[in-house]
């Protein structure tokens, strides 16, 4: 559904590529996530695929349409939900949907019918005649998704869809996207929430500095770091020294690093881990303040790949 070859964007006045020779392949019916920190090139990538950013070089096809060569045609196959609320403030909720249908060449009767259906499907019937100013953030986002799929796009693009939403609205939106996908909708989203990428996406591309660092299913990405347990230790001691000690004395440590003043250990197959760590730290004369053991997350994957945290 999406295919890119060496897709590159260098913004005028900059000497680096915001997106650097990107090769992507997204299949029909997939939920594909671009995960990365701000400035990684996710939004630029999505912008090029949705015709708003003109590629410097390379090629991108969406639904078989070359987006740079035929932008007007490409818009027929894309549905877009942007970060900001872009609803038409001068129209009510129902009209926002209806006019979208008309914009995409549907007749009055068809547009009316689909607008009614979508309001019901997205549980917004009660708000049909309301001003869009009356909608909460979550409802506005749902309406934007409803509007974006109105013309049955081949790919639904969402740019940071849940940024700024409360946790409940975020879950509700994931539910909506999951359902759309089960109905066959191909979805591409950008996000910097690892949990969103983990829960929602079939495959995730981790991006940084305009390049894809890793691309796979969330499970495979997490397996790929070669550890099944992540231990974070905070102690009243020099973290660098402690990291070296723990890496040497604790069995099964694949990698040890310092992040945010704490020592992080990637461990695989470690036995009696807590005990080992406490003993090793005590021998080194470090008082442990806090110790936590978790499974690897996409955040861990990102840290392993870049040495930085996703939030930076």
């Amino acid at each position: 559904m999406i295919h890119t070859e060496q897709l590159t964007k260098v913004y005028p006045g900059t000497d680096f590529a915001a997106v650097d020779c990107l090769d992507l392949e997204v299949g029909t019916g997939e939920i594909f996530g671009l995960l990365g920190p701000n400035g990684a090139g996710k939004t630029t990538t999505a912008g090029m695929l949705t015709t708003r950013v003109i590629p410097t070089s390379g090629r991108a096809l969406v639904g078989g349409v070359d987006v740079a060569a035929q932008p007007a045609l490409a818009k027929q196959v894309s549905g877009i939900v942007s970060q900001q609320n872009t609803l038409d403030r001068q129209l009510n909720v129902w009209e926002n949907l209806y006019f979208h249908g008309r914009l995409f060449g549907m007749g009055a009767t068809t547009s009316r019918r689909i607008a009614d259906e979508l309001l019901e499907q997205f549980q917004l019937e009660k708000w049909a005649q309301a001003s869009v100013y009356a909608l909460s953030g979550g409802m506005a986002q749902r309406l934007m998704v409803a509007r974006a799929i109105f013309h049955r796009p081949a790919v639904l693009f969402l740019d940071e869809p849940t940024a700024g939403l409360d946790p409940q609205s975020r879950l509700a939106l994931w539910e909506v996207l999951g359902q759309l996908n089960r109905d066959g909708q191909t979805i591409m989203l950008t996000t910097h929430y690892m949990e969103e990428a983990d829960r929602l996406c079939h495959r995730v591309a981790i991006m940084d500095h305009g390049k894809i660092l890793a691309l796979d299913t969330p499970a495979a990405l997490k397996r790929g770091i070669g550890a099944d347990t992540i231990v974070t230790v905070r102690a009243a001691a020099d973290p660098e020294q402690l990291a070296a000690v723990l890496a040497r004395d604790v069995a099964g440590v694949e990698r040890a690093r310092v992040a945010d003043g704490a020592v992080q250990l990637d461990v695989s197959g470690g036995q009696r881990l807590v005990q080992q760590i406490v003993l090793a730290a005590e021998r080194a004369g470090a008082d442990i303040l806090d110790l936590s053991i978790t499974e690897p997350t996409l955040e861990t994957v990102f840290i392993t790949l870049t040495g930085r945290e996703l939030r930076d």
């Binding site: 639904g63 078989g64 007007a72 027929q76 196959v77 006019f99 008309r102 049955r152 081949a154 066959g184």
Partner: peptide, 25 residues
Amino acid sequence: RAVPARIELQLRPVLTASYSALGAL
């Protein structure tokens, strides 16, 4: 299964699509 009735890639010529878009705007 993967592409039910939802996605039918029926592209309209740009000229036709532009004409109806202008009308809708």
